[in-house]
Design a protein around this nucleic acid. Sequence first.
DNA 1: CATGAATGAGTCTTCATTCAT
DNA 2: TATGAATGAAGACTCATTCAT
Lengths: 182, 182, 182, 182
Amino acid sequence: MQVLKEEVRQRIIKSARREFKKCGFEKASMRSIASNANMTVGNLYRYYKNKEDLYGAIIGSLFDEIKNLKANLPEKAEERLSYLLENFKELQKDHRSEWLTLFGGSTGTKYQKVADDIHNVLRNALKDVLELNGRRPEIAVPVASAIIYGLNTILRSEKGKSADLADDFLNYMMVDIANRVA
Amino acid sequence: MQVLKEEVRQRIIKSARREFKKCGFEKASMRSIASNANMTVGNLYRYYKNKEDLYGAIIGSLFDEIKNLKANLPEKAEERLSYLLENFKELQKDHRSEWLTLFGGSTGTKYQKVADDIHNVLRNALKDVLELNGRRPEIAVPVASAIIYGLNTILRSEKGKSADLADDFLNYMMVDIANRVA
Amino acid sequence: MQVLKEEVRQRIIKSARREFKKCGFEKASMRSIASNANMTVGNLYRYYKNKEDLYGAIIGSLFDEIKNLKANLPEKAEERLSYLLENFKELQKDHRSEWLTLFGGSTGTKYQKVADDIHNVLRNALKDVLELNGRRPEIAVPVASAIIYGLNTILRSEKGKSADLADDFLNYMMVDIANRVA
Amino acid sequence: MQVLKEEVRQRIIKSARREFKKCGFEKASMRSIASNANMTVGNLYRYYKNKEDLYGAIIGSLFDEIKNLKANLPEKAEERLSYLLENFKELQKDHRSEWLTLFGGSTGTKYQKVADDIHNVLRNALKDVLELNGRRPEIAVPVASAIIYGLNTILRSEKGKSADLADDFLNYMMVDIANRVA
DNA sequence: CATGAATGAGTCTTCATTCAT
DNA sequence: TATGAATGAAGACTCATTCAT
């Protein structure tokens, strides 16, 4: 049974996605991933040199888009926040599984800092908005977390039409933002 | 060198607190805890009969207070939300490290459901408030998460004067709640 | 050096047989078994998923035959005793090592009750015979033990032609049974 | 609380007897023994330098009597067998617990050979009797085991008046011995 | 005399990773 | 290319024994 490289890679990715989402990075088992992908461990290691590498292959596309997103931040501070929120919604929709994997269980991985990055970018955008409005910027820290975890909670319990809920939630978090801060 | 029991216990607790906070329950290693406490595994087990027991020694007091808090929920729906938020602030102040440990990684522990419970209680209190105001209650789910993770983030980055920040954050999350929801 | 699976399995079984026979189940060490089989513990566990499983691989066939034997006990009390004794001899011949392992140390195993069962079945058959002859049946208890341990001793010291010895021993134990009891 | 040495020794012995009978040598725990004797491990080790030493202190008296018994074997072969059987009954009565300990769990101890010795002495006496009667002596091996384990079984299930049963059993094993062997 | 804290090597078991085939 | 056997270090936990106090 001669198999095309790419087809095998897909099988691995599919199996790994499931495993990482279910178990997080550290508790995920290479053996399980291999056997659920109908192959041997040895062969798995021919495609990805170790667990972190495989993890990266999954998180990768999301990772790239996040880098992209950061690179294209609007110049004007006032636009950054809405730019980010819009894009987060997009990313979550297009990379649901990876997003949850990244935020659910990347501890112990070099990708953990990507998750941290997301927080930082959002945090800074919030700070800018607050400062533009002459408000104390410290609150940006918890609010950024609140937004991200709120969105993740929606994503996790999602059964389809959660786009609306995400919009409502973001609205709830942002409406009249300036007047809610000291 | 023979050391006093209590002093050793403190060393263990200190080391375990760090480990559990960093890794969560399942990924925490008794070996690491022991060696960071400058002792052998065997000796660690003289003080705490197993990993869960040690975890309990750290989380225990917070656990009790949370049970207590749940047992004393106000009858009236309108009072529940502010009761919870006030008490969360108190608990976080008095059990900073434990709170982060509990919410950071209690998976695999009998204490896990407490963390889940907290989410639920808060969620339900939010739902009640929203319904009392004739608003759609679905948003309670992400908002409850947002509040808890926001508070945790404050706790984590704390350098002292964070009580104010928590107040500001909760104010931010709650002010004019009814008018921000459809 | 890569070795064929079956050859390794044999090495394990051989080593385990020795260990279990010498130490019994509880005191047997997986480390010893592995190292006497010239392999690492990790590899041992690739072949047998745990200690009990390995024990079962050794004791298994005997176990099945014993269950079989019990299921086919003759209806008539007079026939049971000779049926049992005949079959014991057969089983001991075909499963020498396993028999000694089972009776030497199956404590802590699900197979333990089989060894106990054997005692009981033989005991009851003896009781029946004694009662049929109008004798006091109490003596069946030590006599059943005596028979089994006597047979085991033969088995243990065996150097080949022990079938005769077993016959002689059973003859010794049974001849004129009724007239030797009060 | 100043305690007399001898009194402490007795407490240890009493506790150890229970533990060794229940668990056998290898699974017996020095910690349990110490704590059931209301003392610390450290102190226990002041009285007995290690586990085997303590085991010896318990088996000791039986051990001495067995040596004694062997030293005083009757010259005449015909008398040896009944001498042994009588004395076994005595020893079992006077050292019930130690006897069961010795035969139940002395594996891994230097005292194991004492148990083996018992078998040998009885075996040889049986052989002599058989040879005196012009019979094949091989059967002495299993018969000696049978006798000892039969007696042990009685001892183990004893609830008081088992002396009779032991007599009956020995009678059963010995009556008309010569005519039951080829 | 006595304590009990500490050690170190042992128990079973799991798993990422390598490498001979 | 692919296999899967083998390794080695780690996981939680136990226990006989020693030794500072």
